[in-house]
């Protein structure tokens, strides 16, 4: 907690310096600088691990750069420094600077390994969704139901993204981060994604959920998340594996609702017969 507060302090001071820069957009500046904490226990743990690693690196940098800067200032020829040519070897020092890093690394590896095992636990899901990437969009099939959603970039973003569209991106709500049909999930329930692709490799990423997994033809990858019960909302992400011309134009939008609302949504979108998937239309 203390660390996070310190981080925010540092962030705000950096922002204060950067305040003269054209920071027209950022409402909350910290979000522009750092990883989001997110809304799942995985994303929060990842954030904590990230901050821990960052501060370890800052600590090492202060020590190493400090010694270097000391040398740069005080061991200059122009200050009349005389080189100590006998200083070429010291077993003691060399043992220390080999073992200390090893200990620091072990200290970082243990929490990282624990978290890795924890967030790769995909057992006992309450909701199963098959996610299929295609050029360029995502298809979501709710397993055990007849509900299927094909999700592509929203018409307004699509229109604004065309060459010579003349539409200002800031005038489009969530430019490049909005879709025609959102994927709906319940909060407080474990959702498992079964991720694949029908053409090239894509990658499904929503930073606030702490989930990024490649969608690979011929493979079914697993990932799961549980959104905190008090955090319903809309969470946005993008494809993160280069997949051709439309790579920047296949956003992901997850709408997290209460379990009751989720059930109602499912019911509304279920059809008595399994709906045939529509063929994805290619971007012109």
């Amino acid at each position: 907690m203390k660390r996070a507060r310190l981080g925010r302090l540092l962030g705000s001071s950096v922002l204060g310096l950067a305040g003269r820069l054209p920071l027209a957009w950022g409402a909350s500046g910290w979000d522009e600088l750092n990883m989001p904490r997110g809304v799942t226990s995985a994303s929060k743990s990842i954030y904590a691990l990230h901050m821990m690693a960052l501060w370890v690196c800052v600590g090492i940098a202060v020590v190493v750069f400090g010694v270097m800067i000391w040398s740069l200032i005080f061991h200059r020829k122009s200050r009349g420094a005389v080189p100590d040519v006998t200083l070429t070897h010291s077993t003691k020092v060399e043992v220390v600077w080999t073992t200390v890093p090893v200990l620091i690394l072990v200290g970082m590896a243990i929490p990282a390994a624990r978290l890795l095992v924890k967030i790769n636990n995909n057992t006992d899901p309450q909701v199963n969704i098959r996610v299929t990437g295609f050029q360029w969009g995502w298809r979501y099939q709710y397993l055990g139901t007849t509900v299927s959603v094909i999700s592509k970039i929203s018409a307004s973003s699509n229109a604004a993204s065309q060459l010579h569209s003349g539409i200002r991106p800031t005038s489009v709500p969530h430019y490049l981060l909005s879709v025609d049909h959102q994927v709906v999930v319940p909060v407080g329930e474990k959702v498992r994604l079964l991720i694949t692709s029908i053409d090239v490799i894509h990658s499904w990423w929503v930073p606030d959920l702490g989930v990024k997994r490649d969608a690979i033809p011929g493979y079914i990858n697993e990932a799961s998340f549980t959104i905190a019960a008090d955090r319903p909302g809309t969470y946005r992400g993008q494809c993160t594996e280069l997949c051709g011309r439309g790579h920047a134009y296949m956003p992901i939008v997850v709408r997290a609702v209460t379990p009751a609302a989720y059930q109602a949504w499912l019911k509304k979108h279920s059809s008595p017969r399994a709906r045939r998937p529509r063929t994805p239309r290619q971007r012109p």
Binding site: L72, R76, P83, T98, P101
Partner: peptide, 25 residues
């Protein structure tokens, strides 16, 4: 991957130690 930090660190420390008590220009 983390292990690579050890020999890389050794190199950086050696360079810093080379500058230490040198006569820099």
């Amino acid at each position: 991957t983390m292990l690579i930090a050890v020999p890389t660190g050794v190199k950086v420390f050696n360079w810093v130690a080379t500058m230490w008590r040198g006569s820099l220009s």
